[in-house]
Amino acid sequence: MNRPMDRLWVLMTASFVIYALLAIVMGVIPGIVLSATRPTPGISPLSGPAARGRDVYVAEGCSYCHTQQVRPLAQDLVFGRPSTRGDYAYSTPQLLGTERTGPDLTNIGRRQPSAVWNYIHLYEPRSVVSASIMPAYPWLFTLKAHADQGDVTVPVPPGYAPANAVVVARRDAIDLVDYLQSLKQAQLGSAK
């Protein structure tokens, strides 16, 4: 018996070449082609604060519970129109997500335009949605005895508000909410 694969270098070279080819065909080439996708008309790169807010979104791992992709399925219509490739032209890193423990956020800027609601919700989700299992993010806020001028204060409902202190949004919270408000689907042009 003298099989070619009994030689170490033959086995390793064969494995290497086959997998490298597959990696190029299935990984690299789709990556190159799709990276060149043209943006959906009407979308623009994020501005300073919203772009920073997106970094907060990544740092806190919001995308492990929230998708940002609307599927062409009936149950997804509540989240907007089906997403297209061009919608993501300015979205790197991509945040499509793979799990919906919480609702899809593709169009949350339209569905929940209130910044105040978002602040309260981030400070303690259960103060606005009692059955929520979303984590609270109190470290995006500070507690102060009195609000100073220019502070963004958060009217946390009684029962959840700290005693003798006001809740003030930090820059991370302000930017994050800016980002959430920027999440609005562009209307697609007629029949294209």
């Binding site: 789709p30 990556g31 190159i32 082609v33 799709l34 990276s35 996708t37 993501y88 300015y90 790197t92």
Partner: peptide, 18 residues
């Protein structure tokens, strides 16, 4: 270089499964 927008989605699909 080839991981921009949906391009990154395709690489991610390839990566996470492989």
């Amino acid at each position: 270089t080839y991981q921009i927008g949906v391009g990154q989605v395709s690489v991610q699909a390839f990566y996470m499964h492989n």
